[in-house]
Design a protein around this nucleic acid. Structure first.
Lengths: 246, 246
DNA sequence: AAGTGGTCTAGACCACGGC
DNA sequence: CCGTGGTCTAGACCACTTA
């Protein structure tokens, strides 16, 4: 057993700096305000720029700051809540859904998704790309994977694009109300999603994987990528199952 | 509009390195294996140690690696799934609950929690600390906040400690089955929770805030901190509400 | 004591945004 | 063009674990 008192150990400079900056943010700055640049801040606190940046990274992770190359470091607004309650997303694409469809085309899914859908490797599915924007800024992208059995192509359909996507989503709406599985984990943005979210590659993101079920079978799956700095996922007022099934 | 093709731009060294290391992890290493030390890896790939560390940080964020000072860098096992379905946690502390109570005592809650519980600032609540351990490693800590109105102290109760906590949890079990609110967001471990989770201050964690409801009122609240590198939160097979309320 | 990852420095150059 | 944050270097020293 570790008998030392961890509280008495000297804390790293970047951590102390984080505390100082947090207090400064709480008292001296308001949302949207631009901080002094990194070189000036480093000088003010008497540390190397790399050390200061380590502290800023922490605060960005916590959603307190927003940094943009060529622009500067600004105080971030509170995170936006995104509702992931099952009732809100029984099927994606229902009327009033705030997501914007950007593309759709048949293609083979990544191996992890094929496993999720119980498909043989090599099978192709419809892949629908969507984006969620709030306050004029992109906060999430999603790929929705729909096996051909669920939504057979119509002869008149365009081969790809938003129009095809909208037809597919309309088809989904007509299915039975469905259950769903979700998992949430931390991830790092790939180059492509980073670009779509206006972030740098490797930025921390919340990865939400959903399995959509009809009659006990996996009808579709989606992988949504939320900007971890700007999003708070909410699962609203869910009655305990014991109250409903008992 | 940005017309450049972002795919053709040269990627940063640390990002390319991340790709190389990912491939190496997939083909040449198995779970638990120890990687060469950072100085050796940096030399092998012809980069500075700081650059190599940037790549390792990415992989740790993705849950692929685990680094421990004085020990080395090892290949991490797949993330453990933690079930956060409402049915699993109608109330904390039910029989079979895998959490371990570590402490309990009355104290004023942090301001954010007081707001959540709709309490005047200065009011005190019961604070119960719990820890979740899987495979012998701590993966989460939680503080459960219970207002005195819900669980009035009994004269014979010890002033604090696990015994008091267990009585409080027993009291909760006797209440009505309840609904709940949840939010999930990214956070940075404080010095104290970092210590409890065997991590460094500032490590990325998943912050799960839960409001427990009885008869439409907030009966209690909890803030749980999950190690983001080792945990995957799951919300199992939830029937769409339309199917239950319709 | 030896070897690991963690912290910190002081500098350089690059990519981007706005003027 | 200039100022911003992003990348990268080559070193030093520290804190921790293990033997």
């Amino acid at each position: 057993m570790d008998t030392r008192d961890w509280r008495r150990e000297p804390e790293p400079k970047y951590w102390h700096l984080r505390t100082l900056l947090t207090e400064a943010l709480d008292t001296e700055f308001s949302v949207g305000e631009v901080l002094p640049n990194e070189r000036a801040l480093a000088a003010r606190y008497g540390v190397a720029r790399a050390t200061l940046r380590q502290a800023l990274e922490q605060l960005e992770l916590e959603g307190r700051l927003q940094r943009r190359r060529g622009v500067g470091t600004t105080v971030a607004p509170p995170r936006v809540g995104v509702d992931l309650s099952p009732s809100q997303h029984a099927w994606p694409g229902r009327p009033g859904d705030p997501w914007t469809v950007t593309a759709a085309a048949p293609a083979p899914p990544p191996p992890a998704v094929a496993r999720l859908l119980d498909l043989p490797s090599g099978a192709t599915v419809e892949i629908i790309h969507r984006t969620l924007t709030t306050h004029g800024r992109p906060v999430a992208t999603e790929e929705l994977y729909v096996p051909g059995a669920v939504s057979p192509p119509a002869p008149a359909d365009p081969a790809e694009g938003p129009e095809r996507a909208r037809r597919l989503l309309r088809l989904l709406q007509e299915c039975e109300p469905a259950g769903q599985d979700r998992t949430v984990e931390l991830g790092a943005a790939t180059a492509e999603t980073a670009h779509r979210l206006d972030r740098l590659p490797g930025s921390p993101v919340l990865l939400v994987t959903t399995r959509y079920l009809t009659a006990g079978r996996t009808a579709a799956a989606s992988v949504a990528t939320y900007r971890a700095d700007t999003c708070r996922l909410t699962f609203a007022n869910q009655p305990a199952l014991t109250a409903l099934t008992g």
